[in-house]
């Protein structure tokens, strides 16, 4: 699987640098405005876009045919794309905690925002990748805006629901959303594997 990942990273290295620069700009804006939302919004986008870009290259190059004929399993091909998404997401998500170091933003609202948006990012990735595996990258890209809107609505809706019902504090609700993102990702891997198992190349 390392070979597949290396191929993905070599393929998307240009975009990776581009998105890193975009995220850095949003980070700077967030620092200047003392607002975490700009930055977290940007990383939600990047998390799913990078593996989808890798898939787009593979579709164009017919890479999966070669990989499968060379002993790479369908499961490894699927997981490699998720790992790429996570590899892109985790460092950016980790950098988000630097906002919490700033005295003006060292509060539970910042921490909650990081977890809510982190969870939404994972949920967006969980929905986008099976869509891309099932429908192809072109259609998945078209659907991505809707997926992102749905993931945002879901995450924010859950937070508001928890707040209104007074079930849990903001931070607990945010943690629940983040946990849902992780669970969603695990379910999503299973769905993508099932899609790929049934696919003819």
């Amino acid at each position: 699987m390392f070979g597949v990942m290396l191929k993905d990273i070599k393929n998307v290295r240009g975009q990776l640098l581009y998105y890193a620069a975009v995220v850095a700009v949003f980070f700077a804006i967030g620092i200047i405005l003392k607002n975490v939302y700009f930055y977290m919004g940007a990383i939600i986008f990047v998390a799913a876009v990078l593996p989808i870009s890798a898939l787009a290259y593979d579709e164009k190059d017919n890479w999966d045919k070669f990989a499968l004929a060379s002993g790479v399993t369908r499961g490894q091909l699927v997981i490699a794309r998720y790992v790429l998404g996570i590899v892109a997401f985790v460092p950016f998500f980790g950098v988000g905690f630097l906002f919490f170091v700033m005295p003006a933003l060292r509060n539970t609202e910042t921490l909650s925002s990081l977890f809510v948006f982190g969870g939404i990012g994972l949920l967006a990735m969980s929905a986008a990748l099976p869509t891309a595996f099932r429908l192809g990258v072109e259609k998945a890209r078209a659907a991505y805006t809707v997926i992102l809107a749905c993931a945002l609505a879901f995450g924010i809706g859950i937070s508001l629901l928890f707040a209104r019902l007074g079930i849990a504090s903001g931070l607990t609700a945010a943690s629940v959303i983040f946990a849902l993102g992780i669970v969603g990702l695990l379910i999503s891997v299973r769905i993508s594997e099932a899609i790929y198992r049934a696919k003819d190349f």
């Binding site: 191929k7 070599k10 190059d61 017919n62 004929a69 060379s70």
Partner: peptide, 30 residues
Amino acid sequence: KNRIGAVLGETCLPENFTLRDINDVMKHIF
């Protein structure tokens, strides 16, 4: 499966790659 060498109808290789890139990746595939 690595004992099989396949050449498919299309090239099926990353078009952005040079031979050096391909060598780097294939080291980990085969």
